[in-house]
């Protein structure tokens, strides 16, 4: 980090004004987000995971599918950081390679569900009446299927593979996002500021995108961060059933599933991919929480005032 840690920061001559619109909005948002210690740590860890996923093979000490039967079921050691599995493959390498698969599936699936589901929920909640009835009954139909069954059906039609797995999981999650969005929109729709916006002539599209969606967003953001976790696990479940990632290719979920049988004699098979899932999911959730807070202007002022008051005195807080 910086060469002089403590005093340099507090004796900085310029009085930092966190809410002046000089900087672009997204940078301001990012700055505030990183000021939240939990969110900052989560963001850093996630960045690490993403980096690992991008660099995959250059980081992995051995090929992920290199079988070395003599070395099978070795516990973690200097040679094999995370140990080896039942075929003597290096688990550390496989966890690194699996990052890309798991992240891609998770992000892609939640992306599909978020975009389509929120759009449906937005329209259903805002327009109500028959639009609501038609869209939400269709969502109920999707909801009525057991999630795994629906995913299996999608994969049976489109064939296995990680892209199709993501699509299948995404479709399964669409109704969840539609419901969460609709519920939130129903509340926001009745707000006076929506009526005020209509009274000055704003179009439905403008009202939806500028007023309703931003104000309905917090529960959707939380839902997205939770769904990322479930998507990674759903990928594991589908891989376990032989429909997701195809062996010998690694994915965290698949490794977890494969390691299940060896839990009593070789815990590291399931432990390390499990930890990878756990940490990634935790980071997504913490980041989601931080994002939700930062996007709320009321919280934002509090955070800005609190962090501004600590080093630079009460100048910023006083003029309010």
């Amino acid at each position: 980090m910086t060469s002089q840690p403590g005093p340099a920061a507090s004796s900085a001559p310029k009085p930092t004004a966190p809410l002046k619109p000089a900087r672009p909005r997204w940078r301001e948002t990012l700055g505030l987000l990183l000021r939240n210690p939990t969110a900052a740590v989560a963001a850093a860890l996630l960045l690490g995971v993403i980096l690992v996923a991008i660099l995959d093979e250059t980081l992995a000490p051995t090929g992920p599918n290199e079988i070395d039967v003599d070395e099978r079921l070795q516990p973690p050691s200097g040679e094999h950081l995370f140990g080896t599995d039942d075929l003597g493959r290096d688990i550390f390498s496989r966890v690194i390679l699996g990052a890309a698969v798991s992240l891609r599936v998770g992000l892609f699936a939640v992306g599909i569900a978020l975009v389509i589901g929120s759009a449906i929920g937005l329209l259903a909640g805002y327009y109500g009446r028959w639009v609501d009835d038609v869209l939400m009954r269709f969502m109920d139909m999707l909801f009525a299927f057991p999630a795994v069954l629906l995913a299996i059906a999608v994969l049976a039609v489109r064939g296995p593979g990680s892209g199709n797995t993501a699509l299948a999981i995404g479709i399964v999650y669409i109704p969840i996002f539609a419901r969460v969005t609709r519920a939130s929109v129903l509340g926001v729709r009745e707000e006076v500021y929506v009526r005020a916006s209509r009274s000055v002539g704003a179009s439905d599209f403008r009202i939806l995108t500028r007023h309703v969606l931003p104000n309905a967003a917090p529960p959707i953001i939380v839902q997205a961060s939770i769904s990322l976790a479930f998507a990674v696990l759903a990928e594991a479940a589908l891989s376990f059933l032989g429909l997701g990632t195809q062996p010998p290719n690694p994915s965290w979920g698949l490794m977890l599933a494969e390691g299940r049988g060896y839990l009593q004699i070789a815990w590291w098979l399931a432990f390390f991919p499990g930890m990878a899932i756990f940490l990634t999911v935790l980071c997504f959730n913490l980041l989601g929480d931080g994002l939700r807070d930062v996007l709320d202007p009321r919280q934002r002022t509090l955070m800005g005032a609190a962090s501004g008051a600590a080093p630079a005195g009460s100048e910023e807080g006083g003029d309010r």
Partner: peptide, 16 residues
Amino acid sequence: GMVFQDPFASLDPRRT
């Protein structure tokens, strides 16, 4: 135009 009753509800909290 219209001026609304409750000034706490008639302004979008997320817009400057």
